[in-house]
Design a protein around this nucleic acid. Structure first.
Length: 295
DNA sequence: GGGCAGGTGGTAC
DNA sequence: GTACCACCTGCC
């Protein structure tokens, strides 16, 4: 984003008739769902990209999300994309009601703390890239990798602004080039996965339609994608609310809250039973609350 | 300066 | 099936 100041931006305008609390907004944009957003320094304002769109997103005084775009983009065409990205057309009421019906104290309290939390609808392909980078890394480091990959291999969206690269482009790249983006041992994973997807002509978008089990099985066949990363891709890249990514923090939190054994498979089974259909959304709320010391 | 991080894959029982 | 441990790199 270092060049972004050189381009001019359109006026901020509302994205949709939805509201976020400031806490929920920051949690949604900067809580580990996506890695392409960075704070602009202004309160509750982020700058980044998704798909072929670069944008600045912020919350206005009423809690309504607003967007601004580089002038080279057609803002009229971008607004609906942002609306979709923020999952504004999904009614979260039903999901929340279903989770409240479980009577689980932790999820009920977490949903009260985060009354307007949403799950971003990222591209599956972007989620695959982001979460392959994520293993054993902190969010700040993952963001750097993602930004470097875009800078080095991505198509230009606007001068100084690049999208995340396609798998075709990454498949052509030498691993040593990918390494320069700070991926470390994940560079080989990303290279191998890009080559596999390109060779098979697999469309990551298909993951959205595939049955959950089938989509997960496919993802597990990719290099650098294990259970946790596969579930992150399914939850944040395919809006599959039943996906329940189990990382070290979730393991700890689940043990504390429910006394679950320290076994990812058992934790997933437990969550699926406890929160039918929406385990992933429940986790996002519970885990955010836990991580921020609010639960 | 050593330990460890929002895991995965390979190997050894 | 389950239990380790190496793997890059950067930050504490």
């Amino acid at each position: 984003m270092e060049d972004s100041r050189q381009i001019s931006w359109t006026k901020f305008e509302p994205v949709a008739d939805v509201r976020f609390t400031a806490l929920d907004w920051r949690e949604t944009m900067d809580g580990g769902q996506a890695f392409s957003w960075n704070s602009t320094g202004n309160e509750n304002e982020f700058e980044g990209f998704f798909g072929g769109v670069a944008a600045r997103l912020r919350l206005n005084a009423e809690g309504v999300p607003e967007a601004s775009f580089p002038e080279c983009l057609d803002a009229r065409a971008c607004i609906p994309k942002v609306r979709k990205y923020l999952d504004c057309d999904t009614d979260y009421g039903k999901m929340r009601e279903s989770l409240a019906q479980t009577g689980d104290a932790a999820v009920i309290k977490a949903l009260e703390i985060y009354p307007t939390l949403r799950i971003l609808r990222q591209d599956p392909a972007e989620a695959i890239i982001g979460f392959i980078c994520s293993s054993s890394k902190r969010i700040i480091q993952i963001k750097r990798c993602v930004r470097a990959l875009a800078g080095r291999f991505g198509e230009e969206i606007c001068p100084g602004y690049r999208a995340l690269p396609t798998f075709e482009r990454l498949a052509r790249a030498d691993v040593s080039e990918i390494l320069k983006c700070g991926l470390g041992f994940r560079a080989a994973y990303l290279s191998s996965t890009s080559k596999k997807i390109t060779a098979e002509k697999f469309e990551a978008e298909n993951l959205r339609q595939m049955p959950y089990a089938e989509a997960k099985k496919y993802l597990l066949g990719l290099s650098g994608v294990g259970d946790k990363v596969a579930d992150c891709i399914l939850l944040f890249g395919c809006a599959r609310m039943e996906a329940f990514p189990v990382d070290t923090w979730v393991r700890k939190a689940m043990k504390e809250l429910y006394g679950t054994p320290d076994n990812p498979q058992k934790i997933r089974d437990f969550a699926a039973r406890k929160f039918p259909d929406y385990a992933g959304f429940a986790q996002q709320a519970i885990f955010a609350a836990k991580r921020n010391g609010l639960l």
